[in-house]
Computed example of a mutant assay.
Amino acid sequence: MGRRRKGRDISGWLVVDKPAGITSTSVVNKVRWAFDAKKAGHAGTLDPDATGVLAVALGEATKTVPYITDAMKAYSFIVRLGQATNTDDAEGEVIADSDARPTDDEIRAALGQFTGDIMQVPPQFSAVKIDGERAYKRARDGEEMELAARPLFVEELNLVARPDADHVELEMICGKGGYVRSIARDLGAALGCHGHVVSLRRVWSGPFEAEDGVSLDLLDELAKSEELDQYLRPLEEGLADLPELRATAEGAAKLRNGNPGMVLTSDAEYGDEAWASHDGRAVAVGIYRAGELHPSRVFNT
């Protein structure tokens, strides 16, 4: 018999405004401890030195993580011009430098290369797997790898400010799988001056915004208290990008058992992925077909 996991059966999303200097996994562990939750996970890793939105799912909300991971995200970041590093951020060793400094107009012109559907090569120090091993582990051993380019959709990439000749502040809205460090590296290469990220903040991720995030100090202060529960957001927020279907009472019962259930008409079209609710709570996610939802995920709430 499997070992039962200790903790509370609590479900929902906690938006954390992650500070610099801590890993995303450490934040998840802290949230799980603070809520005494059985299960927790996050939607989209942030580098240890990055700040901003880290959306942490508890309990049944972990079943909605893929929908936040796939959602559009916005980043604000500063690029140091004139230097390339082996990690594409300020933590790495400088491996090339240049005295060239592009003008603001040259930077704006170059940004167009990185919008729309592009192909992006991940940083050497990244979580991409090579033959089952994380790239950053091989990179730490001094190995240089040929990482395959990956598709990325960049909706916007704008110049926000130029604090000085060596630095440029940018904002980017992109889809799943974007590496801001790669944008900085490739922009520097396109401008002929090199570049790397010196600061990075995720401003929003899907429906979640950094300004609404909980600090780790507050998490420590309210840990294991009922007061902390008020900051937990409904798991349904993780489904914001999917059409909602209203299930009948009979349909909800069938869906909870993993069977197709009757739903009321909505904006969903035949074959769309959607979610069904009953009495204001999520019941299941699945494929909509002719008045029924065929479930792929069922929520035990």
Rank of each mutant, 00 (worst) to 15 (best):
H194A: 08
R185K: 14
L152I: 15
D131N: 15
E237Q: 14
R246H: 11
P234G: 08
Y136V: 09
A127P: 10
R140F: 06
A165W: 00
I118F: 03
E237A: 07
R140G: 02
N158E: 15
A247Q: 07
D117P: 10
A249V: 14
L239M: 13
L111V: 06
G188H: 04
A184C: 04
V214Y: 06
A189V: 11
V180F: 03
F153I: 07
Y179I: 00
E236G: 09
L245Q: 05
D104V: 10
Y179A: 02
Q124C: 02
G132V: 12
N158K: 14
L191C: 07
G112H: 13
S225Y: 05
A109I: 02
Y136P: 08
S199I: 03
K224S: 13
S215M: 04
R138C: 00
A247M: 10
T115A: 07
M145F: 03
A249T: 12
R138I: 08
V203I: 15
L222I: 09
G112E: 10
L235N: 00
L111G: 04
R246S: 14
Q120M: 09
R202T: 13
D217T: 14
S215D: 06
E156S: 15
F114I: 11
D217F: 07
E143F: 07
R134W: 05
P207Q: 09
E133H: 08
V121C: 01
R108L: 14
V198S: 14
A161W: 01
S205I: 03
P122L: 07
M145Y: 07
D131Q: 13
P243R: 09
A247I: 02
E133K: 13
A249L: 10
M119K: 13
R246M: 12
L187S: 12
R108P: 04
I130H: 06
E106M: 05
D186M: 04
D186Y: 04
P243E: 10
P207C: 06
A139I: 04
N158L: 10
P123I: 03
N158Y: 00
T115D: 02
D241I: 11
G192P: 00
Y136N: 01
A223V: 08
E237R: 14
D141H: 12
G142H: 10
Q124F: 11
G213D: 10
L170K: 04
F114R: 00
H196C: 01
S126V: 10
E106W: 03
F153M: 00
E143S: 07
I118M: 06
L219E: 12
E209K: 14
L245V: 03
F125C: 05
D241L: 12
E226V: 04
V203E: 14
L187K: 06
R185Q: 00
A148I: 05
V128W: 08
A148V: 11
L219Y: 05
E244R: 15
L239D: 05
D164P: 02
S199D: 15
P122N: 06
A135T: 09
W204S: 14
V197E: 00
L239W: 08
A247K: 11
L235P: 09
E236D: 08
V128R: 05
L222R: 12
C174Y: 11
Y231M: 05
P163C: 01
M172Q: 12
D241Y: 07
L152Q: 02
G213I: 09
G112R: 02
T248R: 02
E106I: 05
E156K: 15
L239K: 09
R150M: 06
E155S: 14
